[in-house]
Design a protein around this nucleic acid. Structure first.
Lengths: 213, 213
DNA sequence: GACAAACTTAGGTTGGTCATAAAAATATGT
DNA sequence: ACATATTTTTATGACCAACCTAAGTTTGTC
C-alpha cells in the first residue's frame, strides 16, 4: 500500500466524495426550484444518475439532503461552554458568542438566503427536522453542563432555558428573512432582540456554572 | 330538529362515538402488546373490524391513535394563564397549577402507566409527535401572552422559557416512570424538582405579565 | 322516498428497508 | 511480478407501510 493512496484516499474514496457531492448539488437545486416536498428521492436519484437507494445510503433521511452543517450546529452551544475562560459563566459565554455570531452574520444563527428560508418554511418535514437539531443541541449542552456541575436535573433545566432563548432568536431571524429583510437589517434588529432575551434570562442563570479560576 | 337529538346526538352520533372508541381501544391494546412501530394501520382496522380508511379518517396520523387528550394538553398552559386571578403573574399561575397537578398526579404532567411510557419511549414517531404537542403548547402560551402584553417577541421568549421548564419536568417524570418508580414516588421527587426548576426561573419571570387588579 | 353522512373499496405515491449483485481493495499462489 | 481468489465496500432492484385521492355503497335522518 503506497502512502499516496492512504492520504488521498484512493480511487474508491474519490468516487465516493464525487457521488455524494453530485447528489447533494442536484438535490439542493431541485429543492429550490420546486420546493422540498415536490421533489421525490427518485427525482434526486434520476438527476444525479444513481439509484434511489444510493441517495438514501448517503443521506439516511431526505431532510439531510437540504440541511447541512448539522454536526457543527448541534455541537455549537456545548463547545462554546466547554471553551469558556475561567471566571465566566455558561450564560456569559453563550451571550458573548451570540453577539460575535451576529456581527459576522453566522449561518448557524439562521442567516440563510431568502430562497433557502422559504424552502424550510414551506416544508413541514424540514421544520420538524430543524427542531430535531435544536433538541440535539440542547441535549449536548445539558450533557456538558451535567459533566461539569454534577447536578443532572439542574443542568437539564439550565440547558432547556438557554436553548429556548437560542431557538427563539433563531426563529425570529428566519421570520425576518421571510419578511424580505436584508441580512444587515436583520443583524441590527436581532442585536436588540438578543440583548432583551438574554437580559430576561440573566437574573436566572447569570451566576450558574461559573468556571473556576 | 328536536332538542334532544341535538344534545344527545342521535343514533348516528352514538355509533360514530362507538366506532371511534373501538378503534382507539383496539389500537392501544395492540400497541402495548407489540409496540407502536410493529403495528400497522391495517392491523388496527382488522382488529376493530373496520376499513383501513375509516381508521385514518378518525385519526389522520397514526400517532394520534396512541396519544390522547391532545387538545387539553396543548391548551393547558394558555388556559391557566388566561384564568389567573388579578395580581398574579403568568409565572405564578403556572407554578401554582403545576403544584396542584402534581398533587392529583395529573396525566397531563406525564403520569402514565409504565407500559404506556415504554410504548412512547420505544417509538421515535411517538416521541417526535409528543414534541409537536410541547411545541404547540408553547405557541398557544406565546399567543396568549402576546395578546395580553402586546410585545410579541418578549412573549415568545417568556413562553419558550416557561414551556422549557414544563417540558423538562415532563421528561423527568417519564424518565422516572421508565425507571420503575411508582406514581407516588415520582410525585414526591417531582415536587422537589419542580420547586428547583421554578426557583431558577422566578428571578427572570416572577414579575412578568402580572394581571392588573 | 329523498337526502346526507359515514363507511368501504380500490389505486397510486412516497419515504424507507432488505437481500443481492457489482466493483474495488487486499491477500494468495505460481 | 503477475494473475487469481478472497474480503470489504458500494450500488441496485424489489418490497413494505403510511398516507392521499376519488370513486361507490350502506345507513341514518327528515
Amino acid at each position: 500500500m503506497t502512502t499516496t493512496q492512504a492520504v488521498t484516499g484512493g480511487l474508491r474514496e474519490l468516487k465516493k466524495q464525487q457521488t455524494r457531492q453530485a447528489i447533494s448539488d442536484h438535490a439542493t437545486r431541485l429543492f429550490i426550484e420546486r420546493g422540498f416536498d415536490k421533489v421525490t428521492i427518485a427525482d434526486v436519484a434520476a438527476a444525479a444518475q444513481v439509484a434511489k437507494m444510493t441517495v438514501t445510503n448517503y443521506f439516511p433521511r431526505k431532510e439531510d439532503l437540504a440541511l447541512d452543517h448539522q454536526d457543527e450546529f448541534v455541537a455549537s452551544l456545548a463547545r462554546t461552554v466547554a471553551a469558556r475562560p475561567a471566571g465566566e459563566s455558561a450564560f456569559g459565554a453563550l451571550r458573548a458568542a451570540y453577539r460575535g455570531a451576529i456581527a459576522r452574520q453566522d449561518p448557524v444563527l439562521g442567516f440563510s438566503g431568502p430562497t433557502f428560508a422559504r424552502m424550510i418554511a414551506d416544508s413541514p418535514a424540514l421544520t420538524a427536522r430543524l427542531r430535531d437539531f435544536h433538541d440535539l443541541r440542547e441535549q449536548a449542552l445539558a450533557g456538558e453542563l451535567a459533566r461539569e456541575t454534577g447536578d443532572v436535573v439542574r443542568a437539564r433545566v439550565a440547558a432547556a432555558l438557554l436553548a429556548a432563548v437560542h431557538r427563539t432568536l433563531f426563529e425570529e431571524t428566519l421570520r425576518r428573512t421571510l419578511d424580505g429583510r436584508t441580512n444587515p437589517e436583520i443583524a441590527a434588529a436581532l442585536a436588540v432582540s438578543t440583548e432583551e432575551a438574554f437580559a430576561v434570562l440573566e437574573p436566572a442563570l447569570g451566576d450558574y456554572a461559573v468556571r473556576e479560576v
